[in-house]
Nucleic acid binder design. Structure first.
Lengths: 339, 339
DNA sequence: ACTGGCACTCATCTGTCGCGAGTGCCAGCG
DNA sequence: CGCTGGCACTCGCGACAGATGAGTGCCAGT
């Protein structure tokens, strides 16, 4: 019993099942794929595959269905990624080239991914923690209020209103602005908190409270809650995945709203490899996503990963196409951000 | 055949159907509500109600189900809105009082609404067109770039990077900043475009291109596409509405992503009345929402409606409770925004 | 105007049954 | 030793039929 053929059988089962959405039997297999052997032989292979936990049968006298482990092997042994069609490549290019700012890039990307893969698309905003400070601005609003604006090298702008006890003079403001920028520009956002820590001492004691309020707001702007935003599109595709998936749709929608879950998942997957990562079913380690697979990739300017994007759909998805699409989009977005 | 009792019967049918999710018959009606008459009498009333199109039967030998028209009458004749429980009131207050800025207010509001009504909650960001300019700021970023920041009286901040041919002097920038604010502060956003139109002429001809770029960006910031953002929560509640609603979930999810549809709907509903408005089923005039009802209300500071919020769910929803919740939340949010 | 009675309609449920897809095993063959 | 054809077996599923009962409409009576 050749090991290679067993893999081929598994692949055939996965492909057929993804296509037909129905358990696939030995006879149908030999008809649709020219494996060169008889159904009986396939049956032996299938028995072995089931023994090893790669496939399972929903009930006796039904065909086989891939298990999470089966999909996993299928994905790992996947050498020939399907390239995108020229039309798809053009669509990516024209759509993304028209973007005018970061918000627009993210928005277009997530829609594009959803349309391309017919799955739920997820795009994480470029994380603040990895990027650096380009500029900090302080704007007096009057009535004891200042506006603190933080601009990062990824083009992201974070602003925040600071309440102060007394309105500072334009002179003081200018000095604070200058010192803040001197200390922070070019630094990673995670490092900023410490590099500006000593600032209050360099001001007259009377002004220290003001400086402290501003620094507090600045640190707030860097806080995790703000930095890790994600955007979704294509949730309607979930319902289209067939009525059988309808039962599991509710927990998935919950997971999508619980952005924390997605963020954790995305972050973990970044460790896997620099390339596209895949989590299948229970590998997601989240009950609500037990029948869901996640395909994700990092993206960012200058080769460094600043955030992630990907799609989410039933474990029964077309992995080769989906992986190719996610990879292509991640690369294009990275290229756009590089400028 | 008393007209009043027919209304009472309709109300009983709606209440029972909302509760049990099953067609309701004459016998069950007299058992659960003390109408003081026999099933046979009820049957006559029901026949009349069906004649007038307020109820329908899915098939012979089944009970009656309210039609859109039936729900409509039910809602219109609804005088006694259920007040919220004290616990709910407290929940609203404590949750919303903790908000730190506009984004946070909107975020908390939408989650609150979803939790309170167990429906899909929708909150429209305070529209720029109705609000006024509080401040405009110009920040040099270097490398031929300026940051334009626009702050409105609702606390919303809109920023935008402007590409310029030459970096302006600090002096020129200060003058432009001063003139912009003099012309725009206090104005409605819709009026700003015209009040600043004459600005380029008040500068030396050499600086006009710069001024024009900035004005262009400013007008862009005011453009409709940006102003009309909406935020969702509780989409998972859709799937919980029962398996029968599962079939219609896909078009609804699509509609939710097509924010244009929701915006149009919300805007139309604002005309209805100053209070909470309801659209039931086909009244939404959108195919995908044929089995969906929308309950919405305006909110805003100082009594003027600057945006809308509401919920969306199956036509078979608990209108009294939902309307009460939407109204209460709208009022609290308005109060928060007033400060 | 309301009520009780009655005949009628069907959707739903249940049980039975046959079909057929699919399997596992085994003996035989190259 | 691996592959193949044959064969018995399992069992989910759809079709069919009959019983059930909820619910209705109508009518005569109070």
């Amino acid at each position: 019993m050749s090991e290679d053929r067993r893999i081929a059988v598994l692949r055939a089962i996965v492909e057929d099942y993804v296509h037909t959405r129905e358990p696939v039997g030995s006879k149908a297999l030999v008809e649709r794929h020219n494996l060169g052997v008889s159904p009986a032989t396939i049956r032996n292979d299938m028995a072995a595959l089931e023994e090893d936990g790669y496939i399972a049968q929903p009930h006796t006298s039904a065909g086989r269905v891939p298990t999470d482990k089966g999909y996993r092997l299928f994905v790992d042994r996947l050498h020939g990624i399907k390239p995108l069609s020229p039309a798809e490549k053009r669509a990516i290019q024209t759509l993304l080239d028209g973007a005018i700012d970061l918000d627009d890039v993210v928005d277009r990307t997530v829609r594009l991914l959803a349309q391309l893969t017919r799955q739920v698309a997820v795009v994480q905003y470029p994380s603040l923690s990895r990027s650096t400070v380009r500029h900090i601005e302080l704007v007096p609003l009057g009535a004891h209020r200042l506006l603190l604006v933080l601009i990062t090298d990824t083009g992201r702008v974070e602003q925040r209103v600071v309440e102060v006890a007394v309105d500072p003079s334009e002179l003081l403001l200018g000095e604070l602005r200058a010192k803040l920028n001197a200390a922070a520009v070019g630094q990673r956002l995670t490092a900023v908190a410490s590099t500006v820590a000593g600032l209050p001492e360099s001001f007259p004691p009377g002004d220290a409270p003001l400086v402290r309020s501003v620094l507090e707001a600045l640190e707030d702007s860097l806080a995790i809650e703000r930095e890790e935003r994600i955007v979704l599109a294509g949730t309607a595709n979930l319902a289209r995945s067939g009525p059988d998936f309808g039962r599991t749709i509710s927990p998935v929608l919950e997971a999508l709203e619980e952005q924390v879950v997605l963020l954790r998942l995305f972050t973990e997957m970044a460790d896997d490899t620099g390339d596209v990562g895949v989590r299948i079913g229970r590998e997601t380690a989240y009950e609500g996503l037990a029948e869901t697979a996640v395909v994700a990739s990092g993206y960012g300017s200058r080769g460094e990963v600043v955030a992630r994007l990907g799609v989410l759909g039933p474990t029964r998805m077309d992995y080769p196409t989906t992986i190719a699409a996610v990879r292509a989009v991640a690369r294009y977005v990275s290229r756009i951000l590089a400028q």
